[in-house]
Write a protein that binds this DNA or RNA. Structure first.
Lengths: 161, 161
DNA sequence: GAAGATTGACTTCTCAATCTTT
DNA sequence: AAAGATTGAGAAGTCAATCTTC
């Protein structure tokens, strides 16, 4: 069976995929535990605060946040439920289109992001810099950017409209 | 804030991490949907069947399966609950150590794996070969192997004991 | 006591369906 | 009808606690 399953080109694609799966799970678990313990935030919560802080005016439409985070619309609703309960994000309405609800970063949310960032970014940097030389890290980042969905986070040209 | 958060080395590590997160989520969603629709299996179910098929005698201790899959012990129990209910895996006991329960691949399970493999592996190969030249794919696989937990899946030297 | 396995309670997400507004 | 947002139901996994066997 081993011979049947691992043939030619499919082998390295499967290998890459399995390693992506395992690496993601392992990294997410440890980074999540640390972020949760030290700052009471989940990975997606941190990423959401980060996107909002980078966004013009500290606010985004929920649908754009979903795209940026790689979550479904309902996933964003539930994520923001928690952040709103914690006072880190508020709802905002759009005057020109009543269907739209904005997620607005509060001052508390911005402070929480800033307080969390140094240790969280250090943890991320530590994991990667322990394992990769600077040029290897750049190569990895470039290769990962070609995966579906991976480039969306960089698309800063998406305005608030 | 943008300037404060994206400085120096932390930038590329964060970039790689976010792309890993998004790429994983996107890939997992699409591959999972296809595998589920065509063969009624989840990603982890497929991986478990694959590990069992590769293992000597088609059986593994649950704790080794957890290690190989990158899941917690309870995650493996719940995963195998489903596979046992479907008749793809059976429980086996270890005579020399009654604490141990084996997961044993059934004939049905092996057939299901073989039937699923061609289309699933083709889907994986398609995703990666669309985006990477062969040498790039090899580079990506090598780099991903350095992530924590990512190399465990290759450790075939872990015997059944 | 430690190792292997399981269970209960929970988190985080998804999909399908729904509601409102355009 | 399509877009944005939300809700109910459920999938998949975690951790902490427990049970049995070593």
């Amino acid at each position: 069976l081993r011979g049947q399953l691992l043939i030619g080109q499919q082998h390295s694609a499967l290998e890459a995929w399995v390693r992506l799966l395992r690496g993601h799970a392992s990294l997410r678990r440890s980074l999540s535990a640390q972020l949760q313990e030290e700052h009471g935030l989940g990975i997606s919560e941190y990423e959401a605060l980060l996107l909002l802080a980078r966004a013009d005016g500290g606010l985004m439409r929920r649908v754009d946040l979903a795209e940026g985070l790689g979550l479904s619309p309902s996933g964003v609703t539930r994520l923001l439920d928690g952040l709103e309960a914690g006072g880190l994000v508020e709802k905002g309405t759009c005057e020109s289109d009543l269907r739209v609800t904005y997620a607005v970063l509060t001052d508390t949310g911005r402070q929480r992001l800033e307080r969390s960032s140094s240790s969280h970014l250090a943890a991320i940097a530590s994991v990667f810099e322990e394992r990769y030389a600077p040029d290897e890290l750049a190569t990895l980042a470039e290769l990962l950017a070609r995966l579906p969905g991976a480039a969306a986070a960089d698309a800063d040209e998406c305005g608030v409209s």
